[in-house]
Nucleic acid binder design. Structure first.
Length: 111
DNA sequence: CAGCTGACCCGGG
DNA sequence: ACCCGGGCCAGCT
């Protein structure tokens, strides 16, 4: 990770790729894991750039309260919700049901 | 070239 | 308990 060949964006992608199916995490959790706690916004920006990469499941990244804040950036506004529901995660009114239950913290579970 | 914005988060009043 | 302001940093106007 200290490798300069890997940019902050690349590191974000690596973490997002490791999110298990049927689990979700938050922008802040990723930023915190990478050591840039205050750079949660950049994680969002990274997702925007990652949108072209099929390897990066951006739909598994939501904000700290489990709200689908980035749904408008997908091809269709319902794409993000659909993908999550396919993985067994219920979404009501752009809010993940039982968010804590599905939350996956990289610094906690990824060691 | 300078300033604003944003798929955010935390702490203070 | 709610509301507000500051910080973060790349990209765009």
């Amino acid at each position: 990770m200290a490798d300069k060949n890997h940019s902050f964006f690349e590191d974000v992608y690596e973490v997002v790729k490791l999110i298990p199916q049927g689990r979700v995490t938050s922008y802040g959790a990723i930023a915190n894991y990478l050591g840039s706690k205050g750079s949660a916004r950049m994680v969002g920006w990274a997702m925007n750039a990652a949108h072209s990469l099929s390897d990066v499941p951006a739909h598994r990244v939501v904000n700290r309260i489990g709200l689908l804040s980035g749904r408008h950036h997908f091809k269709t506004p319902t794409q993000m919700q659909d993908l999550l529901e396919v993985e067994g995660i219920r979404v009501e009114n752009d809010q993940i049901v039982d968010f804590q239950k599905y939350f996956w913290d990289p610094s906690q579970e990824l060691l």
